[in-house]
Design a protein around this nucleic acid. Structure first.
Lengths: 184, 184, 184, 184
DNA sequence: ACTCGCGGGACGACCCGTTAGT
DNA sequence: ACTAACGGGTCGTCCCGCGAGT
């Protein structure tokens, strides 16, 4: 498990980065394999179902990374607002460190998938749901519980929209505004 | 001239639909040509710069379609809130009529383009800016002017995020929540 | 005739240059048209049989240009050797002025034509024969008549070979050696 | 290992034949692939740099074939003249066996390549140089050494020119005359 | 358990030389 | 004399097997 996990993990890592920057279809297997230094045979050993399986893994991995960001943002927050602001700031940092290039890891795969590939769509949905769930837990702790789900949904939704606008405008400003959006 | 406009317009229309459903790269020229009944040579007559030029045209065309939706939503609105709600409802209708399949016409192109193709990125940004500008005009008429730009940015951002979640969940509910999000 | 000859002549001129540098198939109609500023419709007015007809015209035109070079070289020559040397020098100048890039105008078309297009092959052969004939006339004037045809054939053949080597080596030296080759 | 060499070698062989008969650009990859029975994917495994890499290989392979002809012609020759005559005769045979259709394998590629593709041009030049070098070795053995290089250059140059005229006239006569050309 | 060499077709976008309409 | 439109062709790249080897 030790050695092989490396190759597998590296493939997931590289693929995730490329998907976020170029999109799923624009990131060819050859490019992914080239940049991760893995030979073709190895890839199909680790991912016998091919590119989609890799995409699913990359979506789930990136999903967990964002979950950690959510925990970091809300972990010690004393109000939903301060947690949301910290969340936006952390996403803004991530985005800026990528050179204003890396989109949301779920979105990049979600939008190029619909008709076929139910498992991939399901993974994207599951990751979104997990994010919302994590935020909801913190919301119900920090705010009146009745609004918790709406607060969580609204925050994730706003951050996703912010990610898009941030990309189009090459700016981190949208993340800060998104952190302040609340259901009326 | 009349005939030819048809071919061009039809190509833009079909391409836009496919991009929204499958994404830019997943929509091959052959498919676009096949579904619009246009031969290959005609396509390169109307779009000598190729697929990207078609994408740019489709982004701009869809941008104008959404502008009309914005005008329709806010045209007779007596409050920003009622305009926003109507906007969300119209987008929800559009999305539902597409069988829960059509994403935002800008997003689908924006996310698969970044490193290269500055004109395409510029077109995406211009369309976003135009939407925000249109909403802002109505916001400053209906609300205190000081918040108009933030209200507009927030609404567009929220709707974009809603479009993503709507797709992942095959639901129109996100649009309704997005319509109610406001800067705190 | 006055105005239109210009367009026609310009097309022949440009096409000849491109064929010599890039070959027949590598020189697209669009490039030829673009560089000569002629619209597509005009081209098919002047050359209803298409690209091959243009190629034939360019071969014949360039053939006459070389004939003039032959006359210039041998016109006042007092020996076959001095005429041949002058011929080689003039071809070397032509080649050098083209930036060591322009091959023989006949060869470039001849080698990409064989199976189809008998008229084009015939034109190439006719131009070669005309060159040989012109040299032969001078040879029989300047040398013993019995060897005239062999001298002419040998000189043209050597110059053609020189043109190839000159191109591969980016040098004008082959032309000077070719001018000195004689049947043993 | 044995099997794969076959595919690669067969591609080079077929491509060389087609280039000699039709030229480089007129010989489409699909035709080459069709006649050699190889699928596209295999081709790009063996020649990742594409058609130009195949052309380079075919030029080098054909270059070695002609080197063998040179050795055969001059190997047991007792004079430069008899070696040259045998060389011309062997080329004439080759040309006749091809149905008066196959041009020089170097020339066909050289003339359609110039501006781009330095490696291809270098390969053509290297093959020419190798031929000249081989002839020169025999020339210095059989003749006065001082003239050896000129004899070699002149012979190769004459044979190249002969190959062109042979093609235009559908005759093997030029090869025999070329064999007799010597620097004056 | 894992890697690799070699191969396989379908499809990608693009551009070709040409013809109708006018 | 020229704009508009036409398909079939160009080369290149896609994601993916399969067998032997380590």
């Amino acid at each position: 498990m030790g050695r092989s996990s490396n190759a597998r993990a590296r493939l997931i890592e590289i693929a995730g980065q490329l998907f976020q920057r170029q999109g799923y279809h624009a990131s060819g297997l050859n490019q992914i394999l080239g940049e991760s230094g893995a030979p073709k045979g190895s890839f199909y050993y680790h991912f016998p179902d091919g590119k989609e399986q890799l995409a699913e893994a990359s979506v789930r991995a990136a999903g967990e990374a964002v979950e950690r960001i959510i925990e970091k943002a809300f972990g010690r927050a004393r109000s939903f607002g301060s947690g949301a602001e910290r969340f936006g700031a952390l996403l803004a940092d991530w985005f800026e460190e990528s050179g204003f290039a890396a989109g949301c890891p779920v979105t990049s795969v979600l939008l190029e998938t619909t008709p076929q590939s139910a498992p991939l769509l399901a993974a994207c949905r599951a990751v979104f749901d997990a994010w919302i769930g994590h935020v909801e837990v913190h919301a119900s702790r920090l705010d009146e519980g009745a609004r918790a789900r709406e607060l969580a949904l609204g925050l994730i939704m706003a951050m996703e929209g912010a990610w898009l606008l941030a990309r189009a405008q090459r700016s981190t400003a949208p993340f800060r505004l998104a952190a302040r959006l609340r259901p009326a």
